[in-house]
Write a protein that binds this DNA or RNA. Sequence first.
DNA 1: CCGCACTTGTCAGAGTCTGACAGTTTGGGC
DNA 2: GCCCAAACTGTCAGACTCTGACAAGTGCGG
Lengths: 202, 202
Amino acid sequence: MDTQTASPGGLRAITRDAVRTHLSELAIDLFTEHGFDNVTVEQIAAAAGISARSVHRYFPAKEDLVVGDPTAYGSVVRDAFLARSTDESVLSSLRAAFTVLLDHGGQDIRGKAALCVMTSVPALRARNHEKHLLWASLLTPVVAARLRGSDAELRAQVLVQTALACFDVALTAWVVPGEQRTPAELLGVAFAALPSHGPTPP
Amino acid sequence: MDTQTASPGGLRAITRDAVRTHLSELAIDLFTEHGFDNVTVEQIAAAAGISARSVHRYFPAKEDLVVGDPTAYGSVVRDAFLARSTDESVLSSLRAAFTVLLDHGGQDIRGKAALCVMTSVPALRARNHEKHLLWASLLTPVVAARLRGSDAELRAQVLVQTALACFDVALTAWVVPGEQRTPAELLGVAFAALPSHGPTPP
DNA sequence: CCGCACTTGTCAGAGTCTGACAGTTTGGGC
DNA sequence: GCCCAAACTGTCAGACTCTGACAAGTGCGG
């Protein structure tokens, strides 16, 4: 039933996740070589030795092969935000929350290959943005709870979207050929571009 | 050849733009009534009295019937930004630039109906984000030219994306039923949610 | 008045995604 | 160890979006 996290109890869910990651890596390799639009789902299925119908059973859309499960890691960012002290500014807490995601993201961010494909195809960037919007719907309520004054909901949306923009820009800058810094460092540079919001926490 | 702007000299281009707006309004009405996914291109074509193939000649994708031409209004924002004084902060200039777009947008923003449909369907929100990314590619160079220090390109991307987030949040808040304020006022509230960037210009 | 460019309809096809059905495999309780 | 229900898979069929090619119609310009 619950396919979002590999519950350790279920043995079938483990193999399902294994097939998912295998299909994803296989597809990303094909996309990087021939281009996203020049690879059909049938070719991916043939390379994996299964039918095209089964590929759509694991991934509802072709773009999900690159973007991954939208529901994953959304609650991770929210919990990381809730764990921060309410003394620091909201943007500092958001910056820390997304840094946690970067450290935790060694699994979901399958190297630079997936990001390279994603940044080069508009349809994939759009799908990735949908995932970010889902994260925003989880983050906005908890952020609004820390704001005072009128229009808390609207201002929370602005702050969350701003943090997501920093996250996106940092990852986009990470995959350019000459770049040497880590994603966490680039995220710090991105947040530093915003107007002062207090000293950066340790 | 040049289909992006209705060059006043061409008489055929005028009718073409008229058909475009007519098709767009017609489609938005059908979408608001039956839902975006429950209306096929053939139904839109039948309602307009033309073939489905011709609809795709005016709009490359079905989503473009709601989103509109991505290339429009991109240069308007850029020129509005360039017209601002370099004394004020970059975010203030961006806020003023998008305010110009709101005043100018009586044509492109075809009432709240288009926005309502757009905000309710994830695929349309994604397509709209692609349009915003095209605007960002025009804005980022001129914004980076006003920044000093290292990583000007990256910091410019952050500021442009932040301004776009404010623009998006303001328009999304505008279409909620109870809202009374104008888009320009909501844009001011959105920018005010960011950390202080100097006094708001007149 | 006529040529020419633009527009339109029709046909055909590729590709994505979904539902239904039947056969097979496998996990887990007894 | 056995058996059943549940899950997985392949195959078939269909709807829909989008694209290219070709022929026919329309109106502007010289």
